[in-house]
Design a protein around this nucleic acid. Structure first.
Lengths: 341, 341
DNA sequence: TTGTAGGCGTTATCAC
DNA sequence: GTGATAACGCCTACAA
């Protein structure tokens, strides 16, 4: 076992000073060609790599961005990570991911841990529990210490920072409009409880689309799901007892359950009932029938969030605090769970 | 904006020395009750948190474990992360995740970055490309430097370290046996190319099950899929032109595509053709029909890997190098894509 | 051309 | 009971 090589060891080995080694490795002209060659050869031979921790401490920056996510099983978050990593790596940063599992405490813990030097800034989507409690002291704290934060997807209006969101309401409108255009009138909405920002916005888009098309909103066609773990049962009960010709679901899981409920009722998709889900992930693509859905362009969101964050990090001085909110457009992906026009 | 508080600042503020502050905060009896109180109150008031980077540098350990995964869209890896985090947090460690995206270069980059002080050890599943190239110098390097590594799922036989695997071959046998027991005889296998260790093992289990039941293996019923991105087309072509009464797929995506192909052929699942997939994720659960599958117990794998790693980290001295390979048993989850006995 | 000294934030050791 | 000093690994003015 050979422990990691340090400058000091190289110096001792080659009988020069530590600073000579340091300079030589950074190709400083102060050092003679000869010594430089010798030192670099030695370092290469023994595969010297500077210690990141020491560098972070010295430079007071880690060239690392922290990503904190509520969960990871959803394709959406997985694609966002991809987008972040691509930009981050291109710009010389590394990304480390922590999960809050939708728990407020874990979110706070993770942030505190990473904020203590491990990370130069954050990209995060807040936990469900955090949105419920409306306790954002950890975000404020970090921002206050001068670490930039970029929120995405599940954002917090009242926090002053850069944000990347999708046009949730517009996306929902697009979905419902498509249902209306293909002849549906009794459109059910499967959504989350209101404290989830995106659920709320998508619900709003649903309402607007109906109203603008002169279709009355029927409150009994709206199902707000609280307990995601038992969403399927709830959805099946709801759909079995409702008279509908379409379903708009705020995520693809709910969409899949809706199809199951409809088929279970002996009806056909899309002939009798059309279905659209939000989030265009694996499930939508692989499902039978493949689900028409609203694509959130996760990679794009991640990429923009990363650009925004790194821009902030590298801006020499914080000029006028003009935080941006970038909006990524969603798009409708037509598949087999809705009718042709 | 108020930058992070340091010991030095507290010391200056309270007009004591840095070491006094340090000791007071760690409740050293050397310091008088009075000063201790005062300092702790101040620290609390201004929310002092020690700088992790400095601590890491000083202690030469980070209390952090690095997780490197080939991808994240698969539920399997997501559940493994959950298992790791739970154990890690319970034992006072944090976990940071990096993705290789199945690229050799990214895997190496990520390891080198994390190995430079950010992490005390690794838990990883190697990238597809790495298994193909059979280049494991980065693993050897890190182990050589005294950092423990635990491999799981896609492991490398020739690397000497702790491992956590599932009984891939036995799991596959279990699946195929179930198909045989429910009357299937012409069982197709949808697998990956051989350099993927788990694909190879599952293929082996398939063969053994057939042989032990006196059913001849028909090579033309085995499809080795190279390009996962176009797996669906390939699977549909294959199934359309094959005479089969069952499909065993080495992952749930392939299983879902198989069902689509079968239905497309005008046959029924499971009446005409049964389907079993490996990995019991969201897709299997939500699919219609819900897929019978082999559960890999990802959380259990993660938990064991973390225990193994932390044990190594905390073992005072490395006694006799007796690396373990722990095997987590899979289980068959019967759903609606296979017949009842 | 090379080396010395100081500092990033922390803690352990030893001196006062 | 308190403080100065050195060290973790690295970098950079400044001195020699």
């Amino acid at each position: 076992m050979r422990p990691k090589l340090t400058l000091k060891q190289i110096a001792r080995e080659l009988d020069v000073s530590v600073s000579t080694v340091s300079k030589a490795l950074r190709d400083s002209v102060e050092i003679s060609q000869e010594t430089r060659q010798k030192i670099k050869a030695f370092a290469k031979l023994y595969n010297y790599k500077p210690n990141n921790i020491a560098l972070s401490l010295k430079n007071r920056k880690s060239k690392t961005i922290g990503i904190i996510l509520p969960e990871i099983v959803h394709d959406f978050f997985a694609t966002v990570i991809g987008g972040i990593e691509e930009v981050a790596n291109k710009r010389g940063y590394n990304a480390i991911i922590c999960l809050s599992n939708n728990s407020f405490d874990r979110e706070v813990m993770n942030m505190e841990m990473l904020a203590n030097g491990s990370t130069d800034g954050f990209i995060l989507s807040v936990a469900k529990e955090t949105q419920q409690k409306e306790d954002y002291h950890h975000l404020k704290e970090v921002i206050n210490q001068g670490m930039p934060v970029v929120l995405f997807d599940r954002i917090v209006e009242e926090i002053n920072c850069d944000k990347v969101i999708i046009d949730d309401a517009a996306g929902a409108k697009k979905a419902v409009q498509h249902l209306l255009d293909t002849g549906c009138r009794k459109i059910a909405l499967l959504t989350t409880v209101d404290y989830i920002s995106v659920g709320k916005l998508r619900t709003q888009g649903y309402r607007e689309a109906l109203e603008q098309n002169g279709v009355a909103v029927q409150e009994e066609l709206i199902l707000k799901i609280e307990d995601v773990d038992h969403s399927e049962e709830e959805i099946i009960d709801f759909i079995t007892s409702s008279d509908i010709d379409a379903v708009f679901a705020v995520n693809e899981q709910f969409g899949a359950s809706a199809v199951k409920a409809i088929l279970g009722k002996g009806l056909k998709v899309p002939e009798d009932v059309s279905v659209i889900g939000f989030s265009d992930g694996e499930l939508s693509k692989r499902f039978i029938p493949a689900l028409t859905s609203i694509n959130q362009h996760g990679a794009e969101i991640g990429a923009r969030a990363a650009e925004l964050l790194i821009d902030r990090l590298e801006q020499p001085l914080e000029k006028e605090e003009t935080y941006q909110t970038q909006i990524v457009e969603t798009s409708l992906v037509k598949r087999d769970s809705t009718r042709k026009k």
